[in-house]
Design a protein around this nucleic acid. Sequence first.
DNA 1: TTTTTTATGTACCATTTCGCATAAAAATAC
DNA 2: GTATTTTTATGCGAAATGGTACATAAAAAA
Lengths: 207, 207
Amino acid sequence: MVHKKATRARGRPRAYDPAAALTGARDAFWNQGYAGTSLDVLSDATDMNRPSMYAAFGDKHSLYLQTLDRYIADGAAALKQNLSREHSLAEGLHRFYENAISLYLEQGGPRGCYLISTATTEAVQDPEVGKKLLGALRGLDHAIELRLSDAKAAGELDPSADPAALSMIASAVLHTISVRARAGESRAALKAIADRAIELICGNFRG
Amino acid sequence: MVHKKATRARGRPRAYDPAAALTGARDAFWNQGYAGTSLDVLSDATDMNRPSMYAAFGDKHSLYLQTLDRYIADGAAALKQNLSREHSLAEGLHRFYENAISLYLEQGGPRGCYLISTATTEAVQDPEVGKKLLGALRGLDHAIELRLSDAKAAGELDPSADPAALSMIASAVLHTISVRARAGESRAALKAIADRAIELICGNFRG
DNA sequence: TTTTTTATGTACCATTTCGCATAAAAATAC
DNA sequence: GTATTTTTATGCGAAATGGTACATAAAAAA
């Protein structure tokens, strides 16, 4: 039997929580963008001094890439849950958009999707960011398309429905919600957009 | 009779073209974002030295706002032309998206929509930018909705069609095309998205 | 207790960034 | 020609930025 905490790390224990630090860094980038966020701000946001940040996450660029990875992983997990076949398609899409809108408007003012709001700007000059962004966009398309194909097979969608086209629309609606949220659109307006999209995607069918 | 060039400005003539300089500045911001573009880069891009830039456009922030204004005005003019009633709705939307895709992929790598790719990031920290962005988004929605209402009245759209909902979709598709273009998606893929959207919006009707 | 290991905290450095002062240049007005 | 006006050109300077050296603190190991 091995006690997890039995063997403690050798030297001085770290004074910060790595996961919380990454969240703090992400929130700072989220508010000010990659280029607009200084190491001083990141140091405050992570509750770490500069050398510790460096030791833990590497330089600013490397830290940013790690926040992107975690956001993408978290988003994929939430997506999988929301679009599981436990709920109807309409219900799943409803949860999916509600979840997104809440995330985009969370605490301290609107901010939109982390990728669209910060990574898109950098994607042109930074191939690593561009690659992660494109991968995430395609991943979302793909996951939704799979769910729509299932729905079509299950009779939840009209037999003439085109899952590829509809999944593109569903993604586009998420993207527009992100942009509008960050621009300052109200929660009610964003919800109305989501509701209209769900109606349009699901047509007259209800699972 | 007054000759336009008869009375020349008093002092040393300017060595730059104001409109071209604004275009150069815009392109620099477009590539690197607002925060990521330094005055040195802007000075190169405008072919102006720093004091001249200041005299002509004010500080970096003021210059950026002016590039936004011009982009928004240009976009509105192009939109008006593409969605005029000279063409059918489907044809108009086709021109609209083709025009956008060409702009988003123009010269020197993909870049997306100038507003979505650069202003969105700043919108949270910079209320002036946020206001301009939100205004532009709503302006697009409104213009498309008007065109769709006309199309409905003219029998180009199904009588049951909802212009407000469809215009939101049409805008969303433009937004997704911008994000995907900047992320590196191919022109063919972007065109496919536009075509699917047009089909979906226009339904089975053709004007 | 002493050594070793790991993390912290202060302070620093080179560079970049934004913005402006100042002088020279190029035109018109007198 | 001289004065006036407007722009250009060089370059400076304060502040901010990304990144790191170095000494110290806090733990386990010997």
